[in-house]
Structure formats: structure tokens, C-alpha cells
Design a protein around this nucleic acid. Structure first.
Length: 543
RNA sequence: AGGGCUAUGGCCAAGCGGUUAAGGCACUGGACUUUGACUCCAGGAUCGAUGGUUCGAAUCCAUCUAGCCCUGCCA
């Protein structure tokens, strides 16, 4: 709890002043789609806000619009939040309170604070006025309490058609805050609700429902994003006029965005529907299912969100910051085997044919508990094509070139003697010699190699590597025109044979290549190995 | 009669009248290195602008500028 933010300050004060003894927050997703990292940020913050102060959080589905919502989504959302390691005291639904909301609406009517309005949707819009001109009172605004009660009853009983009438709060048609111009409280909807079925045909609107939900649950701090700031007066109005016992305080924070991606359900849906990505769980998607498949861990996401902080300013955070949290998380957790993504064959001419020896390599030199494995080494090996240039381009070049000697990690120094090319000049293979004296671990220090490169031998397993890049390119303007056509590259390479028994979602740091996660497309029986690159390693290498 | 909100180095973000204005990411040097990784060291802002209050202001006041949100029977 070292890092402070304005909401923590508020909570701390409320605790010190004795306004509250326990802090209760809530996260209220609408079950109408998949959640993304922006939602995760919301819940993670609410969760730790309460937890850090000894309180708790409720997960409450805001299911007041049956037209858009579905049980399928609530299950998906729960699964995603569980995977993130989030915990909630109560799993609730706005629909749990429909009865209570209905009763409070009647109270409002009796107090003369709400009325049934017959205006059509277009008329309501017209009467509302606009930003600079005050609205006009609805001609139905002054109906008697008895008439309102009767009409509202008939709305509830299904005696009216959709759109025929609505229940409205009686506040102020001239308010500069549009939300206070007699906002709608209930509308008629003959839609099947995923939980209440056909029991109701009137459904409460967000502003009315949300306030009551929070109050019923005794939420102390109702945290939401900035766009609800203008709704706060209405939120407070509902809580007060409905005479709710608990008075929650709504606090708004700025949402965060990440560079090189999009964070809106609408846009994400478009990517899926227009087949710009393979689905909601495409590893390029910022959805939780996407990030998970890509290989991001709950710890990396949580630490990132917590360190990001919270403010009223929102903003766009560098994707690089997010990547760094993944590297930090996996640094000591992932074994570090060798994989060659773009193989170039190397024949070690002075190594005996048919011979295979085993060299020892620790799985992770920064985490000894991983131990080590024996890596087969033989006459034919493969190195990364990018690790060879015929001529050393500059003094900084720390890889292989003709006449140069490099260390094969965990094995021997090899020296490039000859390049074999086809008729078009493409490099087919390299002929090298090795020096038996230089074996790793032998303590050989007579010469310094030109660098250390990774390799695999001919027992390596063919594998598919999926390399991801920014989904959305930098720039302004329509995001559709900034979709990166090269956000996914699929290449075929090799991984060392010790990875034969991997499981889906296993994570590795392939030496010098980056962090990878085993994709669920992997099928060992079929010999199909698929690795997603989560993030590359940082590099100061410049050509 | 429009209202609400925001403004601290490239990006997040602490700071709440007296600090050499935290920290992370990014970037640039350098050390180390069997990953050009990791780790370690070094490097940058006077706080949107302008006035004012004060012995003293990023922190208080005024004005201005820029950006975001609000006119769904969505949430």
C-alpha cells in the first residue's frame, strides 16, 4: 500500500473520521460481452481498494437490459476474473433487486417525485432541449399520485406496449445537467431476461438501478469511470429520495488505455466480426481470454495495473510498460531453453560423424531450483540465420562470420570456415570447426569468443512460432486504417528436444528470443508444437 | 443558461503552503555478462499560461488556454 492515489486518500479519511468502519466496494460488469484489460483494471483496483483497508468487494452483474445480456457472458466473465485471482465476497445480480426497486419506485410516485409519461421517444428527446436550451415540462408531469400509481401498475402488468409509457423522475427540466431533466427510471421491455425470465416487462434504467443496488449492498465507495461524473447528482438524488439507509459515495477515476491496441467492446467486436483477428481469444486481443492465450500471467497483469496507479486524468500508457511487467514476472518463473526460430544448418566438420554427446545446461541460471538438463550435441546443428553474416559488419558484431569464433551456449566454440550457397547465392549451410578444449564448464579462458549464440542439434523438435506485433499501428485517425497487417507472423523452426513433454500454457524464455507460451493448438500426439511469443526480450542491438 | 472534469519530464504517477519536485516505463551513456537479456552505476522537469496572496506556492485565489465528458426508452 506504499503507492497512494486520490481514492485511497478519501477512504483513509473516511476511516479516520469514523464515517465508515468497513470498506465495501463492488465491480458491476454488464454481461454483454467479453471483458478486456480495462475491465480487469477496474476490478483489480476495486478489489485492492477494499482489501488493503480490510474490507471486501462484491461482484455484481448489472443486468438491467435483457436485450443485450446473456448467461453465457456471466459465466465467461466469472471465469476470467477467477483466472485473474480476483475474489469477491458476494456474487450478485442487479436483477436480484427488481422487487425492491419496484417498491422504491412506488415510494417515489407517492412522494410526487416520479410520474408516468406518455411522450414518445422522439417527443421526449424534443422536450429535453439541448445543451444550451432548457427543456420543457412534459404535459404528463402533473398527473395525480393515484393516476401514476395506476398507470405504473398497468405498465408492470403488461397492459401496455413497449415504448407507450415510461416512468420518469420529476427533477428539473431546466437543469444544465441533462441527466437531471426528468430522467427515465423504467421502460417497458417484453424481453426474456436471463435470470428473471418473463416475470417482468418493465426494467429499471441504469441510473436508478445502480444507485439502489449500491445502497442495498451497503457499498461505501462506488468507484466508476469518468463518464459517470455527470450522473453523480442523479445517483445521489435516487439514494436520497428513495430513502435508502446506506448512502454510498460515487467516485470517478480516469480509464486507462494502452498504445497499439483498442479498448472498447464495440471496436473489439468489429475486429472479430470483420475477421481481422481469429476470435475473442486471439492472442493479439486485449481481452482477458486473448491475453491469457498469448501467455500473459495474472501476476503480471495485476502488478502492472497496481503500479499504473489511479487518477482522474486517464491517459494512454505505453504498451512497453505492460510488456516489462510480463518479463519481470517470468524472469525467475520460466525455464530458459534454446529454440531456433529461423534455422541455418551448420556442419561441424571436425566432429565425429554419428557421435552424440550431452552437454549440461542449467534451466535458468538465475533460479537454481530449476536444475539443469542434458542437451544433445552432434555434428549437425542449427543456429539462427540472423546470427551469421559473411563479413563482420562492425566491431560491435557479436555473432558468427567467416573466420570468426563464437561460443555455442552450453557447448563449444565454433569457427566458421566456409559458406555453402545455392546457385542463386542463398546460404544453404555453414561449415565450421569446433575446439574440443573450449567446452562449457571446462574453465577454458585462453581465448575470448566473438560472442555467444544459441543453437539446437539435429534431434530438435520442429515447432511453429507465432510472433505477434502491435495490433494497431501508431498514429491518429480511424483505428480501422491503422490495423497492422503484420501483427501476426508464423514461422517454422526448432526447439530443443528436452521440450517434448510440454503442456498448454507452459511458459519459457527462449534464450535470446523472448518469452513464449505453449498455445492450445499444440497437440503432442500429432507432433504439433505451437509457441506464442508473449514478448520479445529487450534489446539494445542496433544494426 | 450550458454544465461537469482534467492539466507535474516522451508515457504512467507521487506530491495536499517550506522536499535538492518520489517511483516505474521509455530513452542515453558506462560496468558486468556463456542470453546484445538480467543486474548495477550515471543522466533529464520548476510543475498548461498569465497575474495575485504569502517571508515562502506545483500546492491558495483570479483570469486565460488546451483537452475530455454530457442532449440512448445503453451501461
Amino acid at each position: 500500500m506504499e503507492r497512494s492515489n486520490f481514492i485511497k486518500t478519501i477512504i483513509k479519511n473516511d476511516l479516520e473520521n469514523g464515517k465508515h468502519d468497513t470498506i465495501i466496494t463492488r465491480y458491476p460488469p454488464e454481461p454483454n460481452g467479453y471483458i478486456h484489460i480495462g475491465h480487469a483494471m477496474g476490478f483489480i483496483n476495486q478489489y485492492y481498494l477494499a482489501k488493503d483497508f480490510g474490507g471486501y468487494t462484491n461482484l455484481r452483474f448489472d443486468d438491467t437490459n435483457p436485450v443485450a445480456e446473456d448467461t453465457e457472458y456471466v459465466e465467461g466473465i466469472i471465469e476470467d476474473f477467477k483466472w485473474l485471482g480476483l475474489k469477491w465476497k458476494n456474487l450478485l445480480f442487479a436483477s436480484d433487486y427488481f422487487e425492491e426497486m419496484y417498491n422504491r419506485a412506488i415510494l417515489l410516485i407517492k412522494k410526487g417525485k416520479a410520474y408516468v409519461c406518455d411522450l414518445s421517444i422522439d417527443e421526449i428527446r424534443e422536450y429535453r432541449g439541448d445543451i444550451t436550451t432548457p427543456g420543457k415540462n412534459s404535459p404528463y408531469r402533473n398527473r395525480s399520485v393515484e393516476e401514476n400509481l395506476d398507470l405504473f401498475e398497468r405498465m408492470k402488468n403488461g397492459e401496455l406496449k413497449e415504448g407507450e409509457k415510461v416512468l420518469r423522475a420529476k427533477i428539473d427540466m431546466a437543469s444544465p445537467n441533462m441527466n437531471l431533466r426528468d430522467p427515465l427510471l423504467y421502460r417497458i421491455l417484453y424481453a426474456h431476461h436471463h435470470r428473471t425470465g418473463d416475470k417482468w416487462c418493465i426494467y429499471p434504467m441504469y441510473d436508478y438501478a445502480h444507485s439502489i443496488e449500491d445502497a442495498i449492498e451497503g457499498i461505501t465507495h462506488s468507484v466508476c469511470s469518468l463518464e459517470f461524473e455527470n450522473h453523480r447528482p442523479l445517483y445521489d438524488w435516487v439514494v436520497a429520495e428513495c430513502e435508502m439507509e446506506n448512502v454510498p459515495r460515487q467516485i470517478e477515476y480516469g480509464r486507462f488505455n494502452l498504445t497499439n491496441t483498442v479498448m472498447s467492446k464495440r471496436l473489439l467486436r468489429r475486429l472479430v466480426e470483420e475477421s481481422k483477428v481469429l476470435g475473442w481469444d486471439d492472442p493479439r486481443m486485449p481481452t482477458i481470454v486473448g491475453l491469457r492465450r498469448r501467455g500473459f500471467t495474472p501476476e503480471a497483469i495485476t502488478n502492472f495495473v497496481l503500479d499504473l496507479g489511479l487518477s482522474k486524468k486517464g491517459g494512454v500508457t505505453d504498451y512497453a510498460m505492460f510488456e516489462q511487467y510480463l518479463r519481470q514476472d517470468l524472469k525467475l518463473k520460466a525455464p530458459r531453453p534454446m529454440a531456433v526460430i529461423n534455422p541455418l544448418k551448420v556442419v561441424i566438420t571436425n566432429y565425429p560423424e554419428g557421435k552424440t554427446e550431452y552437454v549440461s545446461g542449467e534451466w535458468n541460471q538465475e533460479a537454481e531450483e530449476f536444475g539443469s538438463r542434458e542437451i544433445p550435441f552432434s555434428r549437425e546443428i542449427y543456429i539462427e540465420r540472423e546470427d551469421f553474416l559473411e563479413e563482420k559488419p562492425n566491431k560491435k558484431w557479436k555473432r558468427l562470420s567467416i573466420g570468426l569464433e563464437v561460443r555455442l551456449r552450453h557447448a563449444y566454440f565454433i569457427k566458421c570456415e566456409e559458406v555453402i550457397k545455392d546457385n542463386d547465392g542463398n546460404i544453404l549451410e555453414l561449415r565450421c570447426t569446433y575446439d574440443k578444449e573450449t567446452k562449457s564448464g571446462s574453465g577454458f579462458d585462453k581465448r575470448k569468443p566473438n560472442g555467444t549464440i544459441h543453437w539446437v542439434d539435429s534431434s530438435a523438435i520442429p515447432a511453429e512460432f507465432r510472433l505477434y506485433d502491435a495490433l494497431i499501428l501508431d498514429g491518429d485517425g480511424d483505428f480501422a486504417e491503422r490495423i497492422n497487417p503484420d501483427s501476426l507472423k508464423i514461422v517454422n523452426g526448432l526447439v530443443e528436444s528436452s521440450l517434448s513433454e510440454i503442456k498448454h500454457f507452459d511458459k519459457f524464455q527462449f534464450i535470446r528470443n523472448g518469452f513464449f507460451s505453449v498455445d492450445p493448438d499444440t497437440n503432442l500426439e500429432e507432433g504439433k508444437y505451437v509457441f506464442n511469443r508473449i514478448v520479445p526480450l529487450k534489446s539494445t542491438f542496433k544494426r
